[in-house]
Write a protein that binds this DNA or RNA. Structure first.
Lengths: 200, 200
DNA sequence: ATTCTTTATGCAACTTGTTGCACAACGGTG
DNA sequence: CACCGTTGTGCAACAAGTTGCATAAAGAAT
């Protein structure tokens, strides 16, 4: 899995506590690998046990409610470097909206256009957000190697959202063209019913 | 979750057995919502129990090793139609390669370019496959509403792969430009080691 | 001083998805 | 007919991700 490596990366960028990581996952890294605080705490525990990271000193004992910062150990850094070079196939997308379009081909498009419009709005907003980040963080030239890589990742986000916006616009146009009048209405089932046991 | 709806859609397109569904999921629907036979059998069981689908007649009793076909009941069709219109936010992408790029910004790009090239090949192949399907299934005009929707979904696949190919080409160029010589080598850990307990 | 909110860590239970294997029927082949 | 590969269904155990809640410390409010 990728979560532990996401955490190692984040910790190398800056040693942090679980909650700080959670917050940072809501931005940057979380844009393409989200995680809840639960996952993060659990993973931090495992990483510490395996010797990939360690808690920074400070007066510890009752770990509850007390802030606990972690840093990456050499072993963890090596694992991360190994993972970067590892052969791992891309996983096919998993998108519910595409599935819904497909389903609409069978049960009708009732209510779909509104959803498509809503998604369009959300993706446009995300695109704008990414563009703002790009302007803010990569506006000038002068980028270090790390910066160039981060910029590349950001551009993937931008291009992806661009794809969505373009495709959703086409989808909306197509749906508008067809109108809601479609095959086999979605609510006619109470009367035309065929009982599950009627023929079995 | 979306799996049950994917199954309902597939079953509405054509009543099938678990194994047939599994095979069909390796094509078409599985391109954007994959599932193993295990998931499918489990879900079929739940759907049957909830009255969304039922097994077609035929001489049953010892269900083991015996083919068992399912069809969708009105209740299942209604659930599917309701799901199509449901408000459901798009989930952020989850892509390990982007994560690896990001990690490379911290531990070095060693071995990454090869992976990027490999992914490029895979995505080009997928793109070609989609294009072939498009030509085969949607070459002429004359499409029914269902066809138009399926075509839309396919175009999403095509555009997505197109995005990947373009972005991966840019990434490869950028990586080639930087070369493998990067910050803090990935293997230096056996000597420069800081023991986990040395300061705690 | 007590209460309330915020920061912070974590357990438990559940859902989804994956992997490995067992078992049953069916059809051919020696 | 005994054996074997294919088709087909399914259990069990695990891994990953989600949700809800408990707990503890610290600071601010009354």
């Amino acid at each position: 899995m990728s979560l532990p490596y996401a955490i190692l990366t984040a910790l190398l960028e800056k040693p942090s506590s679980g909650l700080e990581l959670t917050r940072r996952f809501d931005k940057s890294i979380g844009y393409f690998w989200s995680a809840t605080h639960q996952q993060i705490y659990r993973e931090l525990g495992k990483l510490e046990e395996s010797g990939a990271i360690r808690a920074l000193p400070g007066p510890r004992q009752p770990t509850r409610g007390q802030k606990k910062e972690y840093e990456v150990l050499p072993a963890g850094r090596n694992e991360l470097a190994a993972w970067v070079a590892k052969i791992e196939d891309p996983k096919p997308i998993r998108d519910a909206l595409l599935l819904r379009l497909r389903a609409a081909g069978v049960v009708g498009t009732q209510g779909l256009e509104a959803e498509v419009r809503r998604h369009l709005t959300l993706h446009r907003a995300q695109l704008a957000e990414y563009r703002a980040i790009e302007e803010r963080d990569f506006g000038n030239g002068r980028d270090s190697e790390g910066d160039r890589l981060r910029h590349l990742v950001l551009r993937a986000g931008i291009d992806l959202e661009n794809f969505w916006v373009g495709w959703l616009e086409a989808a909306r146009a197509e749906l508008a063209d067809m109108g809601p009048g479609v095959s086999t209405g979605p609510d006619t089932g109470t009367d035309a019913r065929t009982g599950p046991e009627s023929t079995a």
